[in-house]
Amino acid sequence: MLPVGEIRRLARQTLQGRWKEAALLNIIPVLIGFLIVGGAAATFSFFNPDFFNNDLIFGGNPNTDATFSMNIREIISNILTILFATGVSYTLLDMVRNPNYEIVPLKDSLQVFRKGYTIPVLGMYILQWIYMFLWSLLFVIPGIVKSFSYAQTYFIYKDATESGHYLSPTECITRSRELMDGYKWKLFVLELSFIGWHFLGALTLGLGYLFITPYIETSKAIFYEDLLRSR
């Protein structure tokens, strides 16, 4: 597969002259995380095991009401964000595959809703959340490993659906796990290479993700394309 540095270079090349369009495409999911929960940490928080915290379940925490309220807000943010963020990632994958693809920010950010993918995407999100939570009960590391195994689930659903083949959320997750066999570390290194950008996003209270997220998601789209070619 391509080296991480080359993947990032190709992502920058793909976005060259199109950063403004990509930022506008990404404005809805960023603002959801920023306005509903507040701050950069929640902007793309797709997995929150604290919702099943023992204190929350059994009422042992004197601040339970406040904690529950925050968790509900985070869940709402996560659900809305995953729907819009998936539309963003699908658009960037289209752009990686077709350099002449013209981004229409609002229309493309609503891609999941327009194409009727809402329920399947939520199904995939919930199943991944459950699987990762159960794996995390064995310690944190297995849950993290599985999150990389499932990383291509949404892309697999998009490709299967657009080629006329229906795959259930479980089948998409299984295919992602099979596709990522032997490549989880590679994706981990790619993710780790953006840690400095995440710090920058935090320093800008999440607003920096308008430009950071297109860079990261375009890199992931290139990773996926390279992964398909390597199989």
Rank of each mutant, 00 (worst) to 15 (best):
K115T: 09
I75Q: 03
V121C: 11
T213S: 15
I72N: 11
R97C: 01
L2A: 01
H198R: 02
R175M: 13
R9N: 03
D94Q: 04
S147P: 08
S219R: 00
M95R: 14
P120W: 00
I36H: 10
S176A: 10
E6F: 13
E162L: 03
L138A: 07
E74F: 08
P214F: 01
L10N: 06
P3F: 00
V96P: 02
N53K: 07
F46G: 04
S109M: 10
C172W: 01
Q16E: 13
I126C: 08
T86Y: 02
L15Q: 04
I222S: 05
S163L: 11
S168A: 02
G39N: 06
Y101R: 01
G143Q: 05
S149F: 11
Y125K: 01
P49R: 05
L127H: 06
L80W: 01
R177E: 15
W135R: 00
I141F: 07
I72W: 09
W129E: 02
Y101Q: 02
R12F: 12
F194Q: 06
D65C: 05
W197L: 09
V140P: 08
L207D: 12
T43V: 14
I141G: 01
L179Q: 09
K115Q: 12
G196N: 08
E225T: 15
S219G: 00
S89W: 05
L207A: 13
E102Q: 13
A22D: 12
G5K: 02
P99L: 10
Y117P: 06
V4I: 15
Q16G: 10
S136Q: 12
A221E: 09
I28L: 12
K20Q: 13
T14Q: 05
F51R: 07
F133H: 07
M1D: 06
G201E: 14
S168R: 01
L35T: 14
G164V: 05
T43Q: 07
M1K: 08
Y125N: 04
D55E: 15
L15P: 03
V112H: 00
G164D: 09
I79P: 10
S163Y: 09
S176H: 08
Y209K: 11
S193D: 04
T43K: 07
L134W: 04
T174V: 14
S89K: 06
Y125S: 08
L106H: 10
S77V: 07
S168F: 00
R175K: 14
L200Q: 00
D55S: 15
Y150N: 13
Q152M: 15
F51D: 07
W129L: 09
A11H: 03
A23V: 02
T213Q: 14
R175W: 11
L210F: 06
Y215S: 10
M70R: 09
R73A: 11
Y157Q: 04
R8K: 14
F34L: 08
Q128H: 12
I79Y: 08
V4H: 07
Y157P: 07
